[in-house]
Design a protein around this nucleic acid. Sequence first.
DNA 1: TGATGCATGTTGACGCCGTGAACATCTGGT
DNA 2: ACCAGATGTTCACGGCGTCAACATGCATCA
Lengths: 231, 231
Amino acid sequence: MQANANTEATGAAAGGRPGKGRYHHGDLRNALIRAAIELAAEGGPDAVVLRAAARKVGVSATAAYRHFDSHSDLLGAVKDHGQQRLVECMEAGGREVRGSGPEATRQRMLGLGRGYIGFARQEPGLYRTAFCRKALGGFGVTEEGAVTEAGHQPGWEARSFEMLTETLDEAVTVGLIPPERRPGAELSAWAMVHGTAMLFLDGPLDVLSEEEAGYVIERVLRDVIAGLTTP
Amino acid sequence: MQANANTEATGAAAGGRPGKGRYHHGDLRNALIRAAIELAAEGGPDAVVLRAAARKVGVSATAAYRHFDSHSDLLGAVKDHGQQRLVECMEAGGREVRGSGPEATRQRMLGLGRGYIGFARQEPGLYRTAFCRKALGGFGVTEEGAVTEAGHQPGWEARSFEMLTETLDEAVTVGLIPPERRPGAELSAWAMVHGTAMLFLDGPLDVLSEEEAGYVIERVLRDVIAGLTTP
DNA sequence: TGATGCATGTTGACGCCGTGAACATCTGGT
DNA sequence: ACCAGATGTTCACGGCGTCAACATGCATCA
């Protein structure tokens, strides 16, 4: 990640059409990120081409290097955005259910899963980018073999996992999940929703009608919850 | 896919060091595939660079176009190989358990899952390539919007799914899975193992010790089977 | 057996990509 | 008013996938 240049160049803000003859753009970093996000949404991580983003903004390709260390750094910014959007969808799915008790918690787990898979289906390009290897973020290994600990807000990457953890804890409290089955439960849950999302995006599920997709999702979520709650 | 040029040039077979001064290689298609497989094994689908494969074989880059329609076609051949290797691992995992009855079937399901996840962990590059979008194979959509139906042996891609299907059918016969829960069960199972594999390759599970990984895998597989067998 | 046609390989070129170096322009602080 | 640094530009490099034109040699048939 770069030192940073996000502090909104005081003079020209996002208000007055930037890049209209002005030599300095005023908000290039964010403009590039927005352009890259559009590319990702349309074509997935492979469509996030640094030169294309620069072209979209109307700026030379190398200008991007004043705001990003590398292509991978730009892709990482898009990845962060994707993770954030995913979290929003999960939160929206979980918030639909209020109240407490086993059934409410069960419904909240379902909501989280629906939100997750729903995002993957509505924004396949962003979803794929959110879990793209090539982007900075997550963990990496330097050429010397040392483990580097990400760049970009590590918050978003962890946040979705955290939501799941909280809900599973709640499920134990409420008696839905036997305490002895709690450790590692998020792995099963995460694997299931991630795997299902992938089956929709790349696998045989991409041809399903909206109705069929709904059944499949409910079925899969019921299965994983049944697996977790069975003593 | 190309018309085909796989019919082992009668004269020079794989025996005598090919490409040793000979203008014609004799088995270039397979040599390129082997080189590409090595690249994929080491660096995943992104490492499958047509020019690099040609370099490895000691041939000009454009020579590859006598045997493959495009980079994507070569990648597709590697993908097929990965799928085949995956099937072999699943078969090996399933064959470990003989006999019949509910417990044997349950063990066979576990074996299939262990084989699947084991392959993903032992050959991450090939596994990723086996499920790579960019490669030909699977389904695709032409520029005019028509749905094309794959190239490359569609057999391997379907075969692993088929194995799962057979085992689940067996589980119903044997009374493990309630018949009414059978439809769609392969989706849950597939999603779970695929998702788990991804958590190992890209996710937070990549740092686990061999022992810890074993526990996680058993845990996840038990969860999904519990979900499927719960009435 | 020798000529010949086609499969197979090579060279060269094009336009794309990510990226570095050198140069140009603007802007905020003294 | 000036200057330093931030920001943007042009030019260049090597690598990529791919096409067109050309070279080579094996297999077939007169």
